[in-house]
Simulated scan of single mutants.
Amino acid sequence: MLEQFLLQAELAIAALVVIVGLLMMWIIVSVPVWIAAKIVTLGRAKFTRAMLVTAVGPFIYALVFFLSNAALTATLGQQFLIAAISFILAFIAWIGVFKVGFRTGWIRALGIAFVATIVFVIIGAIVTAGLQAVAPGTPAITPFPSF
């Protein structure tokens, strides 16, 4: 009985760690989007809005990608071009989430996505450099090599 309780406790702790980790990652990923939106919208963006957009964006992206891929595959057959078209449509949908979420135009929404990517890379490089200074051999946070 004690073993069963310990196993349940371990599972509960593991689930809690995963949930807390996902929440922390969501907050961290929202920061570059918020900074980019602040810059592009001239200070009108709020962090809570960035968090909402960061939560909704990937779902819309995935939905559009998979639905367009399935629809195009059913009508045109299996081709590389279908994946490229699906990627482009999903990217436009993701930019559309930024457009609606930050109440801005298409160009500014594209700017938010572009600046958010740059800010994410910069923050990732700084965090990676800091982690590697403290713990050499720590893997990079971004796919780019650290300096």
Rank of each mutant, 00 (worst) to 15 (best):
L63H: 15
F66H: 02
V18L: 10
K46A: 06
A113I: 07
L23P: 00
M1L: 10
T117H: 05
L11V: 13
Q79G: 05
T75G: 11
F5C: 11
A93M: 05
S146A: 12
T73G: 03
L2A: 13
E3G: 13
V134E: 00
M24F: 11
R44S: 02
T54Q: 07
F80S: 14
A15W: 13
T104F: 01
F5D: 09
F80W: 10
F66C: 00
I126L: 10
L16N: 05
I85T: 00
G124Y: 15
V64E: 08
L16W: 08
K38V: 06
L72W: 14
M24C: 12
T104P: 03
I118S: 04
G137C: 04
G124C: 07
A125E: 11
L63C: 05
E10A: 01
A83L: 15
G130P: 01
G77F: 06
V97Q: 03
A36F: 00
V40E: 04
I28T: 00
L81I: 11
F98E: 10
T117Y: 08
G101H: 08
S146Y: 06
G105P: 12
V31D: 12
V134K: 00
R108N: 04
K99Q: 04
I122E: 02
L72K: 09
L89Q: 05
F147H: 03
W94R: 05
Q4G: 15
F5T: 09
R49G: 14
V40N: 04
I82C: 09
S68A: 11
F65C: 08
I60D: 03
L81T: 11
F120V: 00
L63K: 09
T138I: 00
W106R: 04
I60N: 05
A50R: 08
L76G: 10
V29Y: 05
F120C: 03
A135E: 12
M1D: 04
R103S: 09
I123R: 03
A90G: 01
G96F: 02
T48L: 11
R103E: 11
Q8I: 14
A74F: 07
L11F: 08
V18F: 10
V127H: 02
Q79T: 13
I95M: 08
T54D: 03
I118V: 02
G43A: 06
M24G: 12
Q8N: 15
L16T: 03
S146K: 07
V20K: 13
G101L: 03
G101R: 01
A62C: 12
A83N: 13
I82T: 13
V100K: 15
L11Y: 06
G105C: 14
Q78G: 00
P58Q: 07
I118C: 09
A9V: 13
A70V: 04
